[in-house]
């Protein structure tokens, strides 16, 4: 198993070359790149917890059997600053997740790409921090 160079950050030459590549956790360590999943389901719970929030969805298979999946999402502080509230994702909402299953085989997936059934992204990134410095600089 390889850790991301951005996480190990051993060689000074590797550090933060053009874009930051490390974040809180190493996706490669937690999720299995050989087990892509596409899940469509109904939100049963959104946990606003640290370090990252998690959405639980009920996914129904072709036979009608319902399985509960957990999907990792952004840090609560970040979501809040982007204008999301506890009313933004509520039980009963339908969402679609494209991601990878966790390596331990449990029903967990990273939530890199979470969309509404019509294709709109649920979490829009890079909307700024609200700092004065975020205004266009002239």
């Amino acid at each position: 198993m390889q850790r991301l160079p951005g996480i190990i950050l051993i060689g000074a030459g590797l550090l933060w070359v053009a874009a930051p590549v490390s974040a809180h956790h190493a996706f490669t360590a937690e999720f299995d790149g050989n087990k892509p999943v596409k899940l469509q389901g109904t939100v049963t719970k959104m946990e606003w917890i640290n370090p990252h929030s998690w959405i639980t969805i009920d996914v129904k298979d072709a036979d009608g059997k319902v399985t509960s999946w957990m999907v990792e999402c952004g840090s609560p502080n970040v979501l809040l600053r982007r204008g999301m509230t506890k009313n933004s994702v509520t039980p009963g909402m339908e969402i679609v997740v494209d991601g990878y299953r966790s390596k331990d085989g449990s029903n967990r997936a990273n939530g890199r790409d979470v969309t509404l059934p019509d294709g709109r992204k649920l979490f829009l990134g890079s909307s700024g921090t609200g700092a004065p410095g975020d205004a266009p600089q002239k």
Partner: peptide, 27 residues
């Protein structure tokens, strides 16, 4: 670049956090 959903990935690579996770501002 930070929005890793738009980046090509090698087979078997689950990628990394995307812009839903980043908060390094816009400037």
């Amino acid at each position: 670049q930070n929005d890793t959903d738009n980046q090509p990935r090698k087979a078997g690579d689950p990628g990394n956090y995307n812009s839903a996770f980043w908060d390094r501002g816009n400037h």
